[in-house]
């Protein structure tokens, strides 16, 4: 019996497919984001709220929805006139690069698409390890949760480029301290760009949509 050196990333296969996805999307000038949060933080609501702003900014976008069951989210988004594809993961708690790879022919079917929003399964743990090939990961946390969330789920905050603190309209009724939440998030990931939004009042949505549009336009050839 002897030791055989392997030295390989466990998720190497996922990472390879993710790299192919990233290259394929980039070559078509499509900017992509991976939206993650705990269930109910407002991923679908944020997409709905941004829709008009993105249309005003002439950003052509589509959504891939990941859920364990059903096509509720895809229907919500489609009712706003946004193309949406539902992926049901069955029992899997996250999307992986392979599933996104299979959705790409549908994505390319939309002429002139500039932005792909992938809404991951509501889960703050598992999606952290699975690169989908996106340009940026966006974590959403809401003021109905704890402001210590970044310290409790560091992997996802560490993997993200952007953070949206949603449901700011509820903050006066909860113990959530937005300042503390920002500090905690920056402790875990000093490079996070943080936005505050309320999908109910519309506060901050225009700014966030504008930022996303700018990222999208800067990607285009």
């Amino acid at each position: 019996m002897h030791e055989i050196l392997i030295e390989e990333k466990i998720l190497a296969r996922n990472d390879e497919i993710a790299a192919e996805n990233r290259l394929a999307l980039s070559s078509r000038g499509i900017y992509s984001v991976n939206l993650v949060s705990s269930p109910g933080a407002g991923k679908t609501s944020l997409i709905e709220s941004m829709t008009q702003h993105l249309k005003d900014l002439a950003v052509s976008f589509a959504v891939v929805e990941g859920d364990l069951e059903g096509d509720f989210d895809a229907k919500r988004v489609e009712s706003r006139g946004v193309p949406a594809l539902q992926i049901t993961t069955g029992r899997a708690c996250h999307l992986d690069a392979h599933q996104i790879c299979h959705s790409l022919p549908w994505v390319y079917g939309h002429e002139g698409l500039e932005l792909l929003i992938i809404e991951n399964v509501g889960n703050m743990v598992c999606p952290a390890e699975y690169d989908l090939g996106e340009d940026a990961m966006i974590t959403i946390m809401s003021t109905a949760e704890g402001d210590d969330k970044p310290l409790k789920y560091p992997a996802i905050f560490s993997a993200s480029e952007l953070l949206v603190i949603n449901k700011t309209d509820l903050a006066p009724y909860t113990d959530f301290d937005i300042k503390k939440a920002r500090e905690n998030a920056l402790k875990v990931n000093p490079y996070l760009k943080i936005f505050e939004t309320s999908c109910r009042t519309g506060d901050g949505i225009k700014e966030f949509a504008g930022y996303l549009a700018a990222l999208t336009k800067s990607k285009m050839k």
């Binding site: 019996m1 055989i4 050196l5 392997i6 030295e7 990333k9 466990i10």
Partner: peptide, 8 residues
């Protein structure tokens, strides 16, 4: 998140 080695 790596595999280092194996024995068998």
């Amino acid at each position: 998140l790596d595999i280092i080695s194996m024995e068998g």
